[in-house]
């Protein structure tokens, strides 16, 4: 199924309104040939997981710049587990200190991109992650 497009759900959980980064990423992923479902701001973890399952996505990408990452990432991982949808890869970006990044990666977040990451790097990483999963 080489021609199948990678499906990515991008969302901002919680109330954080900083959406510059996620929009830039959405456009870059779309331009690179991925299928992007952009949910925008103010989503609960439940809404995000529900949509991810409904839309049968490969990846959930979260953007958090409000300091709520230690709540939202684990909560979404937990809901995916409860819904037996752990095959959906969770990645994210935002203002996330190194120490938290390491903790989140241990919990199962597959990649965290900080400020200054190029869009090529994000695209490359997603392709790696999904490629690995599909092989």
């Amino acid at each position: 199924m080489m021609a199948e497009k990678i499906r990515v759900l991008l969302a901002k959980p919680g109330l954080d309104g900083h959406d510059r980064g996620i929009k830039v990423v959405a456009r870059a992923l779309r331009d690179s040939g991925m299928e992007v479902i952009y949910l925008g701001i103010r989503n609960t973890p439940e809404q995000i997981v529900e949509t991810a399952i409904q839309e049968d996505v490969d990846v959930i990408g979260l953007s958090i710049l409000s300091g709520s990452h230690m709540y939202h990432f684990p909560r979404i991982l937990q809901l995916l587990k409860e819904r037996k949808a752990e095959d959906i890869v969770v990645i994210g970006g935002g203002i996330i200190p190194q120490e938290d990044k390491e903790k989140l990666e241990k919990m199962g977040v597959k990649a965290i991109f900080g400020p200054g990451t190029s869009t090529q790097e994000i695209i490359k990483k997603i392709k790696e992650l999904i490629g690995n999963k599909k092989n």
């Binding site: 919680g14 954080d16 409000s66 300091g67 709520s68 709540y71 939202h72």
Partner: peptide, 11 residues
């Protein structure tokens, strides 16, 4: 509020 979870006092 449910919407506030994880954000209280954060930024």
């Amino acid at each position: 509020d449910l919407m506030s979870k994880g954000e209280v006092g954060a930024c």
